[in-house]
Structures are given as structure tokens and as C-alpha cells.
Design a protein around this nucleic acid. Sequence first.
DNA 1: CGAATGATATACT
DNA 2: GTATATCATTCGA
Length: 197
Amino acid sequence: MSILADEFYLRADVVSISRELLGKVLSTRIDGVLTRAVITETEAYAGVTDKASHAYGGKRTNRTEPMFGTGGIAYVYLCYGIHHLFNVVTNVEGTPHAVLIRAGSPLEGIDVMLERRQKKAIDEKLLGGPGSLAKAMGITTSLSGASLQDDQVWIEDHRIDILPGNIIVSPRVGIDYAEEDVLRPYRFRARIPSVTN
DNA sequence: CGAATGATATACT
DNA sequence: GTATATCATTCGA
């Protein structure tokens, strides 16, 4: 088991990073409480050339500022006034690429996740969407800009192998405003969320 | 299927 | 400074 280093995030190909994050373990420590989940779904957002990205055309605002920072930090924002969405910033400073973590499979701190989600039992909805995942793991906008080498949120490699045949590639969802970029095959799902310790 | 719900961007005064 | 439209969604009917 090892923590993904800055070099992992600093690479240029956000689509490859997005695919490689499948099977990695997202960990958070919020108020001293540890939770872990295996990442099973991601989406790539390719910066200034991608109409689905908040940073399309180099639009730089207070909210999107972390995306323009160096690879290896978090970008969290509030969507629909209700949901916190967690992204990993990639590429070098000034190139606003990011990977949205869309779904996971619970690994550690499950009782805490259930409590945060007000649920009694694990089901596919516990971490089954970007808003749900962030809520279960205690992620809020206050983590936006935080380093993934810090002790609040980080990603580990548990050597969980996702075979290429078990990766489903498809267009992204919820971005109908993105015109021709709607169809970019930037969504990656692991068919079998292997959760064996 | 449709309401919920609030920060944020943008366009005004 | 104030107004208004817009969301990288979820949940319950």
C-alpha cells in the first residue's frame, strides 16, 4: 500500500489518469474520523478545450481557482445547492485539468458513512454518485484546494487490479450544455468493484 | 418525472 | 451592491 505521489497527478494525460484511478483507494480524515473507499467511477475534464469543464476557454474565477493550481490538489464545489462534488486536479500549474470522482465502494469507516448518509444498511446508493460519495466521506467545499499529500484527503494504491475488460468507457453524464463535447468518451466505470481486503 | 436548494457567475443599477 | 439564471445531482412519488 502506498500513497499516490505528486508525480502521478502531474502527468499530462488527464484521460489516462482518470482510467488509472479506478481501483485506487480514496481516503479522508475529517474531524479525526477515517473513511476509505475504492474508486469505481471517474470522469475526465480536459481544461480549456473541453466545453464540459468549468475552466473551458481559460475562464478563471474564485471557484475554479484550484483547477489552475498544481496537480495533486482537491477541487470541491457545490452543485445544485445540495451536493458537494469532489475532483482531483491534474497536470502542471496553469493547466486546469481535473478528474471527477463519481462513485466508490465502501472499504473502511462504513458505520460513519452510513450515519452521514442517514442509512441503515449498505446498498449501491451509499457511494453511488458524486454527491453521495462526497457526503459519505465528509467532503465539503472547505477541502477545495487541499493537497492530496496532506492528512485530510488523499488517494492510496492498494494494488487492486482492474482488468481492461472490466472497464466500461462511455460519454459523460449531466453535461448537456457542453455541445459537441457531450460525446467525448471520458467516463470510466469499473464493472467489478473488488472490495476484498 | 419533478422539486429541492444555495453558491456562483454575470449583467445590470 | 443587487438581481437573476444556472447548475459535473439526488430522492421520493
